[in-house]
């Protein structure tokens, strides 16, 4: 099937979106595109930058928590490792894409795993659903177009982890 690869185009053009980005932030807060057009109180670009940094930090924290949950699960149920490691690596890529340079070793298991492997898989699927929802909300609220694009891709990745976890047999 031939049609132009939209991903490549997106990467080539995404850089030009910063200027209109902070208007989008007002729109997201109000839940309305019309308000952005009429808004007289546009945030400054410094506000927009601070907003993007805060969103990236928040997403990075959430990804680190997910990575820790996967690491805890793999440590408790080694039989799940083959199925879970690829997903864990994808969360590490999400964390890296936030560019926050976290010093913490996010792969360290923390907390207590669920009693059974089946329960652990259900807990991970719940966490992925929550993560995808949070990323969607952060995407809509993002004041910067390129950040919105990355968050849309991460949301999609996490939404797709749910059916993938359903295929792993405990």
């Amino acid at each position: 099937m031939t049609w132009t690869g939209p991903g490549v185009q997106g990467r080539a053009h995404a850089g030009g979106l910063g200027r209109r980005g902070f208007l989008a932030g007002a729109a997201a807060l109000a839940g309305s595109m019309a308000l952005a057009a009429c808004s007289s109180a546009s945030p400054t670009s410094a506000d927009a930058d601070a907003d993007a940094i805060a969103v990236r930090a928040q997403v990075a924290d959430a990804e680190a928590a997910l990575i820790a949950q996967y690491a805890t699960t793999v440590a408790a149920f080694p039989e799940l490792a083959a199925g879970l490691q690829p997903i864990l690596r994808e969360h590490q890529a999400h964390l890296a894409a936030m560019g926050t340079g976290l010093a913490t070793d996010a792969s360290t298991p923390v907390g207590q795993p669920p009693a059974t492997a089946a329960q652990a898989l259900i807990a991970l699927a719940d966490a992925e659903r929550t993560a995808a929802q949070q990323r969607r909300e952060a995407c809509v609220a993002a004041s910067d177009g390129e950040l919105a694009r990355i968050l849309a891709l991460i949301a999609a990745s996490e939404a797709a982890h749910v059916p993938a976890l359903g295929e792993i047999r405990a």
Binding site: A14, A24, M33, E146, I150, A156
Partner: peptide, 23 residues
């Protein structure tokens, strides 16, 4: 990626729809 590009280039309801469709 097509929907991620749409999310990047728009805002509000259409961006919300784009990110949902991509998921």
């Amino acid at each position: 990626p097509a929907y991620a590009d749409l999310a990047a280039s728009t805002s509000g309801d259409l961006r919300a729809q784009a990110v949902q469709a991509g998921c």
